[in-house]
Simulated assay, not measured.
Amino acid sequence: MNKRLHFLFTMLIALSAISCQGKSYNKKATESITPNVNKQEQEIETEEPQQSLTVDSIAYNLKLASLANGDTTGLWPVKDQPLPLNGAILPFNRIIAYYGNLYSTKMGILGELPPKQMWQRLNAELKAWRTTDPATPVVPALHYIAVVAQGSPGKDGKYRFRMPENQIDSVLAIAQMQENTLVFLDIQVALSKIQDELPLLEKYLKLPHVHLGIDPEFSMKDGTPPGKKIGTFDAKEINYCSDFLTKLVKENNLPPKVFVIHRFTRRMITNYQNIKLHPEVQIVIDMDGWGPPELKFGTHRNYIYSEPIQFTGFKLFYKNDVKKAPHRMLTPQELLKLKPQPIYIQYQ
């Protein structure tokens, strides 16, 4: 009997020890797991939502509707266009540009006046637009002809002159005289091809404030020297430029590029409906004809308004627009009555 009691007592002590060890093990296991769970919960709680890569869709579409200026035809604003990447200039700002070439006083106001005088005059235009449309901030720009069509064939027979880099650098320096100034590099290919000219400007287009312009007027397809008749670009060539810019934006983490295409006849842009839009590129069709107000309005109506692509621009000539009656230039107030309202204004 005593032996049996002794055995039972011994077993109870052993079971009690095992139980205590088990509790101790479970406690340690719980302690080793719990901090990880809490850490994960903490990470989830403090994780910030990802920022959108594109601009706010509501703000963008509201501004597009405002630029359409009450158009009821369904042409404007352009439907199904992609939202631009963050940092897009348009349509939240209006670009006011001076156009020309530093080698010539006859190709535009940029080059006609010394830089300080030019800036005084451009600032006056900026003020006029700011006063007329205070809801749309204005951004200054210098639109420089970096490849110029010329009357002589040159060594390679292409009838174009590529500006030396020191001239382009000079324009960049003039732009730095005023904060937030954009630079556009314009290409007149003449008998060359856009595929041969655009890549040569790549190092400049990698700069976030440098954008592109092309001029179909001087894009000759049949060997005719530039200036003898009006040239043309097809949608395929325009898409090549857009694809080139898109690639630059993606590879260099740049804000969207503004891409200006001049136009004052129907044939200057062919197959416009095949032009592709990208979040990385904002296309402006710039009404480039000169003359009295009614002629310019007619050109806008026939070739800009009727074939919508994305955004519109309007060019004003300090000299050519005043040659014929009523001998005056259009005002910002008059241009803002257009449908759609131009978001890029160029002075030559």
Rank of each mutant, 00 (worst) to 15 (best):
N2I: 15
H6C: 09
L8W: 11
L8K: 14
F9W: 12
I13L: 12
I13A: 07
A14E: 11
A14C: 13
A17L: 06
A17C: 04
I18Q: 12
S19Y: 08
S19C: 11
C20A: 15
K23M: 14
K23Q: 15
E31I: 13
P35K: 07
E43K: 13
I44T: 10
E47K: 11
Q51I: 14
V55T: 09
Y60C: 06
N61A: 09
L62S: 11
K63R: 12
G70I: 01
T73I: 12
T73Y: 04
L75A: 04
V78L: 09
K79I: 05
K79V: 10
D80H: 08
P84C: 01
P84L: 02
L85N: 00
L85W: 03
G87P: 00
G87K: 03
I89N: 00
P91L: 09
F92C: 06
N93P: 00
I96G: 02
Y98H: 15
Y103F: 15
K106R: 15
K106N: 14
M107P: 07
M107T: 13
M107R: 11
I109C: 06
L110T: 11
G111S: 08
M118E: 07
N123R: 04
N123L: 09
L126V: 02
K127V: 11
K127Y: 13
A128K: 10
P134T: 06
P134R: 06
P134S: 09
A135P: 07
H143D: 10
H143E: 09
I145L: 12
V148N: 03
G151S: 02
P153W: 09
K158I: 05
Y159P: 01
F161H: 06
P164I: 12
P164Q: 10
E165L: 07
V171P: 03
A175Y: 01
Q178P: 05
L182N: 02
V189I: 09
V189E: 03
K193Y: 09
K193A: 15
E197D: 15
E202A: 14
V210Y: 01
V210L: 05
D215S: 08
P216D: 07
F218P: 00
K221R: 14
G223I: 12
K229N: 14
I230A: 05
A235G: 04
K236L: 08
I238Y: 00
I238K: 01
Y240H: 06
L245E: 01
K250E: 08
N253F: 15
L254V: 04
V258K: 05
V258M: 03
F264P: 04
T265E: 02
R266L: 14
R266V: 13
Q273M: 07
N274F: 13
E280A: 05
V281S: 00
V281N: 00
I285E: 01
G289Q: 05
E294R: 14
K296W: 01
I304K: 01
I304F: 00
Q310P: 03
L316P: 05
Y318H: 09
D321M: 04
P326S: 07
H327W: 13
P332W: 06
L338G: 03
K339A: 04
Q341D: 04
Q341M: 02
Q341Y: 05
P342T: 02
I343A: 01
Y344N: 00
I345H: 01
I345N: 00
